[in-house]
């Protein structure tokens, strides 16, 4: 595999000389890549795993780009991935799994979010854990997931089941509208009022990046590609308010 010079330099190898350790790994050893933007987490988690004979950190990455390179370079069983490294990406997980189909992904998320949780599991993540997970539980999680299990808490189970139910209902009734969360509806309302992402973020008390992430999901759900299409979709389907007749008038045509 051809690697860019910068990419190679940016991978934070576990071994001093940067070589893969698979040759020295005992049979049954779980090979792990730590992908986290914060060195303190990488260092801490690596120390936790160092106490376990069957867990071995083969590489570390501080960005998604470097993770992709590392996964292509080192045979890996489990990737422990900081959720925020996925921010701003759309097909990051499927891309990663195309590169290394056998890799099992664990995402460390800052907060529990229904749509994000369902989306992560849908795209192939095997487990979602909080950043505050205890060392013992983290070790158990890695072993279970390496063994082929899925790590999912009760709340997430309910979200995933609900998502499958909604999907099944949509298949039975293709004319039904996509299910939108209250927050997605709030964002759509702001968009159709002509507000900018920054204004929406301020109004909803969040960041512009979060709004962008939500918008991407909304576009995917509704099959639109931009704000104008979204507004037109809302107009045609009356998803914001359903009690008035559709009306769209072009005011004027100005020749240039």
């Amino acid at each position: 595999m051809a690697l860019g010079k910068q990419s190679v330099m940016d991978i934070l190898d576990d071994t001093p000389d940067g070589e893969a350790i698979e040759g020295s790994a005992k049979p049954g050893t779980i090979r792990i890549i730590l992908a986290d933007s914060q060195a303190i987490y990488r260092v801490g988690i690596r120390k936790v795993f160092a106490l376990e004979d069957d867990l071995r950190v083969v590489a570390q990455a501080d960005s998604f780009e470097n993770l992709r390179t590392a996964v292509g370079r080192y045979p890996t069983d489990v990737v422990l991935l900081e959720g925020s490294l996925l921010a701003g990406t759309t097909n990051a997980i499927p891309e990663l799994l195309r590169t290394a189909p056998e890799v099992k992904l664990i995402v460390q998320a800052v907060g529990a979010d229904e749509s994000q949780t369902v989306e992560l599991y849908r795209r192939g993540v095997r487990g979602i854990i909080p950043r505050t997970i205890s060392p013992d539980l983290l070790v158990r999680c890695v072993r279970r997931i390496a063994a082929g299990e899925t790590w999912i808490d009760n709340q997430s189970v309910n979200w995933v089941i609900e998502a499958y139910r909604a999907q099944a209902a949509a298949l039975v009734s293709p004319r039904s509208q996509p299910r939108l969360s209250p927050k997605e509806m709030s964002i759509i309302t702001c968009i159709t009022q002509g507000k900018r992402n920054k204004e929406i973020a301020f109004q909803l008390g969040t960041t512009e990046q979060v709004i962008k992430n939500y918008l991407r999901k909304i576009y995917d759900k509704l099959g639109v590609s931009d704000r104008l299409e979204l507004a037109l979709y809302c107009l045609h389907n009356k998803i914001v308010q359903a009690d008035l007749d559709e009306e769209l008038v072009a005011q004027k045509v100005i020749h240039e």
């Binding site: 309302t189 159709t192 009022q193 507004a231 809302c234 107009l235 009356k238 914001v240 308010q241 008035l244 559709e246 009306e247 769209l248 008038v249 072009a250 005011q251």
Partner: peptide
């Protein structure tokens, strides 16, 4: 011009 009432 899109009707505001429909768009919230």
């Amino acid at each position: 011009r899109m009707p505001g009432a429909v768009l919230g």
